[in-house]
Amino acid sequence: MIAQRINGVLRPVPTGFVYAAGLVPLALLVWQAATGGLGVDPVKAIEHRLGELALQFLVGVLAISPLRWWTGVNLIRFRRAIGLLSFFYVCLHLSVWLALDLQFRWAEIGADIAKRPYITLGMLAFVAMIPLAVTSTNGAIRRMGASAWTRLHRLTYLVAVLGALHFLLLVKAWPPEPIIYLGCVLFLLGLRAFRALRRGG
């Protein structure tokens, strides 16, 4: 009942609205950066916030199917927008790391990617997102065929785990935030495994 009403309310919402809404945090971040609202270390604040946004959109993408299975609320139509927003924020996050944090010191960047597990995992997640972003068009789905496309896009699961681990491995000690993100990702993947097992058995 409630799910149907929500679906009814969402039906006329254009996906463009999701893109626009997804850029609001960026606008806010730019405004904070311009007005000195990011505290004493704005580079770190921007870098961290962009990564966090990418993870949040990624968790959002993973939540869409379980939400439909267990509540009937159908957000599938917005999934591509949410996924692409996640990729967009990952690109910005990576750019800030390269340009403002490491400042194109390629020797250090190369060493970090090769030697630092959290950066290696982050880069892997970024690379794995590229084919997903590139195939985020109706044309690509047609060309690939739905089942091949679906298989490819299961890479999202790997990306989400890598992204959450990337966060967890860069912090000192065991603060709650990265643990919560990893928990969300594992929970949402667990729901999929649970459903697959139940349907298979």
Partner: peptide
């Protein structure tokens, strides 16, 4: 887990 070769001066 990270390099100590260089640093960012705050501010």
């Amino acid at each position: 887990r990270w390099s100590q070769a260089s640093e960012r001066r705050i501010g």
